[in-house]
């Protein structure tokens, strides 16, 4: 299930992927001509819009094509036209920026963000220990602060 913005200025269909647009209120920019549209979606369906509205704050569609032009298209991740699709969780409310989890609900570090430093092992091999202090010092620092604030629980 996905909604679209059909830009009549350039006859481009901009696909609003459900991950970022499931519940979304804001602006989206046409991949072809750059016109911005206001959209408001609730549970994947249009509540308001799309209507043309100028805005500097927008997110790009995931994919776009031109059906009257023999279905020429913009693949995900085309610079300045579409967003890359890298299976990343979305910020809430969706802005198109990835949202990573660094800590579990009890406050301990969980390796839920990318990119991760490569293991540099031979043939993809890895050791048995994630040395968070060495490999992710910024998360380690954040974790120490959480410990001090008493935000880390056993359950």
């Amino acid at each position: 299930m996905t909604e679209i913005v059909w830009c009549k200025k350039c006859d481009t269909v901009n696909y609003l992927d459900p991950y970022n647009f499931w519940n979304f209120k804001g602006h989206v920019r046409c991949a072809e001509c750059g016109t911005t549209y206001y959209v408001h979606l609730i549970n994947g369906f249009y509540y308001e819009g799309p209507r043309e509205e100028k805005s500097d704050k927008y997110i790009m569609p995931l994919y776009a094509d031109k059906p009257y032009d023999g279905y020429s298209y913009y693949l995900p991740g085309t610079p300045e036209r579409t967003r890359p699709f890298v299976c990343l969780p979305s910020e809430r409310p969706p802005t198109g920026k990835p949202f990573y989890v660094k800590f579990s609900i009890r406050g301990k570090p969980t390796r839920g963000w990318a990119p991760q430093p490569p293991s540099s092992g031979l043939a993809g091999s890895m050791g048995f220990k994630w040395d968070i202090k060495k490999l992710s010092p910024e998360v380690w620092k954040e974790y120490q602060e959480k410990l001090k604030r008493g935000e880390v629980r056993e359950w």
């Binding site: 991950y19 890298v86 299976c87 969780p89 390796r111 839920g112 990318a114 991760q116 993809g124």
Partner: peptide, 22 residues
Amino acid sequence: RHTSPFNEAYLYPLHDTRPMTG
């Protein structure tokens, strides 16, 4: 490995050549 609830819950990395995939 490439399926996740609503495509959002990953643990990284998948492989040393794919640091952005979990």
